[in-house]
């Protein structure tokens, strides 16, 4: 595993303009800050897990990085090149190095195309002159690699189970041998037993091909299993970013502590006596986020300073980054 940084995201902001349907046409639309200043580095072959509750901007962040949604400001350096400044054509050819796996396995496959066509689509798009026999061979190889029988190439997505569909999605993402795969909750729509299979498959493929992964999930135990480092998002802001083991053993942000305390432990004795940190209330609106620290409205440690000053996202030692005035 090399140590070279392949992607560096600096202060990425993705805003949406939301118009109130009852408002007058000349009024300014509200600004929804889905992702508000996220920065991180990703090394080759590394897995960055991104966790956070629903609506905290995980998926928007992923789509902002690979420009499925245009970002407001910031930069995404991919091998030294700012993706956000590329023209549409240049971006399209970059896309063969960065692929994506989606949340709903069946919905991410075109129901009118058969599996062979779906998996071959990236080749047809980026290398349209590849001879047919070679394409067929590549498709078969990648299908075997993800654990699908190659004689199923002529079947259609609705004839497969969810786990198989996700394997097809992975095969499509792998066929051009990308350097990074963005996984947007790839297992949350699957059964627990299938989840393990798919996650282990991703891990194997990563070791074998030196892939970097950005792995989004709301299931902390799965993220822990696959990630090298983990980022905790809350309302589009980074709360904590640390090595996987470090984050689990010594969470420093009150939000992370609450999240980790909510993970069930498969041992009833420990589970019963475990101290649960409860967070009350709902996620505040991203149109009108709280001043200062965005988490202060639900934070058990909140003081006056949290409302007035936004905490700096700082290194508290050994690359363990936290944004909190009162971190442990």
């Amino acid at each position: 595993m090399s140590n070279e940084t392949i992607m560096q995201v600096d202060n990425l902001k993705v805003y949406f303009r939301v118009k109130n349907p009852e408002a007058m046409p000349w009024t300014r639309p509200d600004v929804l800050k889905a992702v508000d200043g996220v920065s991180f580095k990703l090394k080759a072959g590394e897995t960055l897990g991104i966790v956070g509750e629903s609506g905290c901007g995980k998926s928007t962040l992923a789509r902002g990085i690979i420009r499925l949604i245009e970002a407001e400001e910031g930069q995404v350096l991919w091998l030294g090149q700012d993706l956000l400044k590329l023209s549409n054509n240049e971006m399209r050819s970059r896309r063969q190095e960065i692929q994506m796996i989606f949340q709903d396995p069946l919905a991410s496959l075109d129901p009118r195309m058969n599996i062979g066509e779906i998996i071959a689509e990236p080749i047809k798009t980026h290398h349209p002159k590849t001879p047919k026999a070679e394409v067929k061979q590549m498709v078969e190889d990648v299908m075997v690699r993800v654990g699908l029988l190659p004689n199923l190439v002529n079947r259609y997505p609705h004839e497969f189970s969810g786990g198989q569909c996700q394997r097809i999605g992975i095969a499509r993402a792998l066929i051009l041998k990308p350097k990074l795969i963005v996984c947007d909750e790839p297992v949350s729509a699957l059964d627990v037993s299938i989840q393990a299979q798919v996650v282990n498959l991703l891990k194997e493929l990563q070791d074998e091909m030196g892939l970097a992964l950005i792995f989004i999930a709301h299931d902390l135990s799965i993220v822990k299993h696959i990630s090298t480092r983990i980022m905790v998002l809350y309302l589009g802001n980074m709360m904590e970013l640390a090595d996987s083991a470090d984050l689990y053993d010594r969470p420093r942000h009150p939000y992370t502590q609450a999240l980790i305390s909510a993970v069930p432990i498969p041992d009833p004795l420990i589970e019963k006596n475990k101290e649960l940190i409860l967070i009350e209330g709902d996620l505040p609106s991203a149109i009108n986020p709280p001043s200062g620290c965005v988490f202060r409205t639900r934070c058990p440690k909140a003081q006056d300073i949290c409302a007035s000053d936004k905490p700096v996202f700082e290194d508290t030692g050994k690359g363990h980054m936290v944004a909190c005035h009162f971190h442990d």
């Binding site: 690979i66 499925l68 971006m91 399209r92 050819s93 970059r94 896309r95 063969q96 692929q99 994506m100 989606f102 949340q103 709903d104 919905a107 991410s108 496959l109 075109d110 129901p111 689509e121 990236p122 798009t125 980026h126 999605g169 499509r172």
Partner: peptide
């Protein structure tokens, strides 16, 4: 739908997305 997003993420041209998907 997600399969159109998947095609965009793959880098398929808009004209091709319309005719193919």
């Amino acid at each position: 739908k997600e399969f159109v997003e998947a095609a965009r993420a793959t880098g398929v041209k808009n004209s091709k997305i319309i005719t193919r998907h």
